[in-house]
Design a binder for these strands. Sequence first.
DNA 1: TTGCGTTATACTAGCAAAAGTATAACGTAT
DNA 2: ATACGTTATACTTTTGCTAGTATAACGCAA
Lengths: 120, 120
Amino acid sequence: MGDENCVRLAYKIWLDNNGKVFGDGPYDLLLRVEQIGSLSKAAAEIGMSYNKAWRLIRAIEDRLGFPLLKCKVGGASGGGSEVTSQARRLMQQYRAFREEAENALELLYAKHFNEKEIKG
Amino acid sequence: MGDENCVRLAYKIWLDNNGKVFGDGPYDLLLRVEQIGSLSKAAAEIGMSYNKAWRLIRAIEDRLGFPLLKCKVGGASGGGSEVTSQARRLMQQYRAFREEAENALELLYAKHFNEKEIKG
DNA sequence: TTGCGTTATACTAGCAAAAGTATAACGTAT
DNA sequence: ATACGTTATACTTTTGCTAGTATAACGCAA
């Protein structure tokens, strides 16, 4: 049972191509990879297993058709991953779109539901 | 693997209160109940089992805090359901909001992704 | 009193998605 | 040669959701 009058707007927005291509989760993960230079560390930061993070990135790359990460295996540091320029471009576009979409939706929600009361 | 360059916008929008409260599915179902006067027939129309439809309505009513349907059991016709005035009000608000939201999102998507190419 | 169509609800089963476990490969430094 | 931290990937397990099945209650009509 829900709290009496706490109804609120909820939404999920993503890019899709026969499956989820890009959304808030991948955006956040890539942002961290960009800063740290390691997918496993980025995943650990947000409490995600490396395995899950890797599967996520791979699935997206398959659907997107271009690589998100340029990965190195072995070496002094063990290896690492850096975000490709294509991925950085996508991230920028997505962030801008996402922000404006959120603003627009909240505005419309207020217009239709808050100015008039939801309960009849 | 996804088709090369068929990436498109996808989204789900709903009202929420510790679980989904209202969205496109319930809206469509209630619309049919309004016309036919029977939940079981309305469900059958869209290939949904009565059981599923009933659970859907009940869950929403729990979270929403007011009844969507006024139901009669037994009688010559077996019974029937009619949509409450509160539910009708909600349906109207949701439909108007939903339409404007869709327009706004498509517009923003075009602005950020179609005018510039998605592939780097 | 039997039958019918509807609402009302519990219980069960199956299935798909999510996530964990295990393991290999790699390359530098010591 | 060994160790270490990372990427790479298969396999297994679990879990949460979905949906079907069954059954009862109800009230009118024949």
